[in-house]
Design a protein around this nucleic acid. Sequence first.
DNA 1: CCTACCGATCGGTAGG
DNA 2: CCTACCGATCGGTAGG
Lengths: 202, 202
Amino acid sequence: MNPEVAAEVATTQARGRRTRDELVAAAAAAYGDVGFDGASLREIAKRAGVTHAGLLYHFPNREALLAAVLERRDELDAERLNVQLPPALGPLDRLIELAAYNEGNPSIVELFVRLAAEATSDPHPARAYFRNHYRLAREFAASGFRQLRDEGRLRAGVDPDVAAVGFIALMDGLQVQWLTDRSAVDLKTALRHYVEQMLEKP
Amino acid sequence: MNPEVAAEVATTQARGRRTRDELVAAAAAAYGDVGFDGASLREIAKRAGVTHAGLLYHFPNREALLAAVLERRDELDAERLNVQLPPALGPLDRLIELAAYNEGNPSIVELFVRLAAEATSDPHPARAYFRNHYRLAREFAASGFRQLRDEGRLRAGVDPDVAAVGFIALMDGLQVQWLTDRSAVDLKTALRHYVEQMLEKP
DNA sequence: CCTACCGATCGGTAGG
DNA sequence: CCTACCGATCGGTAGG
């Protein structure tokens, strides 16, 4: 292959990757607006500037696109949780900061709330993803409560694992109420209030 | 109208009411399985033993059926919360008992989780219902925390309104995790743990 | 990547 | 309540 042809292949592949990324972003936005069940390939493709057959050139079927969206979301979450926050912050503070960040991005919150609800049905393609996601989230929160216990700050009678299940559930449930009525709920206040009540006074 | 004709009309109306009730129950079950967006009139009608055009004889359109389902759910909830429990129980204990009861009826939990998530999108026909539902639920829980405060049992620094938002959010979030992985969550334990941490030791 | 198509299914209506 | 139909939309495929 001569250099000119090689360069042409490279730019063609780069354009392909860009289209693929745009399709993933468009799908995430569409799932957030109307859910996975409600978002058609035609609607997603139109948002990315291609036909729905063009979408299926990049992803073999509907489920493969969903898998790519969830993968991308995990990448972004990991970046936000581990990289973009001060290293001194504990797990619980990191989760609270993530919730506060999401308050500025309702479409991300909608994406997660809608997909999690749809995935509770048995044969849903995202069910395994969410089971694993919740397991990891609970473990992350539990590590935060264990850390507090080891520092002698946890209130007597508080079980780190039960408190962790509650913390993750609280995040989810607050998001639903917040989406339904933005003025009725303040995510950060409610999450901090929860953590404070799990602590020994001072 | 002679007596025989009157009796005939009465039984015809009774059969109509029975079919209507069966359609509402079938719709509730279908929404629980696949959500409002996923449940077709043909599927709901088949579960009730009529055609989808027969369904539309009883309900003018798709939204009217949804409204009837939500109305019926409120009736059943009110009955369970106010009638079927010991009169001495406070609001929070009543809500915990309701959650425990629902553990035996996953389809009811799915109905609520799926519809609440779908209704977060702006023009959804159930959006107003859920905004009002959450408002009432928060007020009911807040009355429970205020009651505890008046008895001198609430922990210093606990805000009854913030605690109430958290309690309702916790119920919802626990249900999502529980539906996703039944073995990972115990609703009653988590809810009791939450209320206990809002109390002064003894 | 597109045009053009497939069978299937949707909510709703006409007419009885 | 049903039969029979309507226009619209769906996910996916053929062929280029």
